[in-house]
Design a protein around this nucleic acid. Structure first.
Lengths: 99, 99
DNA sequence: CAGAAATGATAAAAAGTGTAAAGCATTGCT
DNA sequence: AGCAATGCTTTACACTTTTTATCATTTCTG
């Protein structure tokens, strides 16, 4: 159980730096290849929208990587955001033995 | 890189068996405690709807567990579904060196 | 330098998703 | 029988996602 001290990179930033920049691929070209709009790709690459399961799969197929990799990047990002955002008010379901 | 041979349990099924049944908590009571509708809780516990980040956090807070745990359960489930569902048509972005 | 292409941003529209409320039939328990 | 819980369906509403079109700016290229 490692505690994450800083917010993990958004999957889109990882995609941009590790795939696009490494291979000199433009956002426009990537959007066409993956079959999504340029707007969506641009927003994703800038971390403005999350990596949906569908997008994760398109990236995985186009880069011979694993769907789980991209889904997990997003999951880690979401988890960090949830932990550092507003906490909803709930009642305890199970009593904390270490209370 | 372990390959998952069977579909991982839906987070809702895990929640039902590991939390509700273990502690004898009803769906109705759990819904009230978490601050969500009984319909949503029921659907979740039967695997009909995904575990949203918000729901994951409510569960984590109410059970003194980790948000990441529930988000990751959903992520694993999503990844398996993506791998075993319909594959979108995409063009390769990077050439597979092992082709 | 001039034209063409790419980029990031924005707004508007369409489609899809998530959530909740109400109602109903069934089950199990006292 | 009476009551609460359950699973399911329908309806309604809000929110999200994705796309298209447009604009100003930057970058490439010839």
């Amino acid at each position: 159980m490692e505690k994450m001290t800083r917010c993990p990179n958004h999957p889109g930033l990882v995609f941009r730096s590790q795939i696009l920049e490494e291979h000199g691929i433009s956002v426009t070209k990537a959007a066409k290849a993956l079959g999504i709009s340029r707007t969506t790709m641009s927003n994703f690459c800038h971390g403005h929208i999350p990596c949906s399961a569908d997008l994760a799969q398109r990236i995985a197929l186009a880069t011979d990587s694993n769907v789980a990799l991209w889904i997990n990047l997003q999951a880690n990002y979401d988890a960090w955001q949830a932990e550092h955002g507003e906490q909803p008010v709930v009642e305890k379901l199970v009593l904390n033995s270490a209370a």
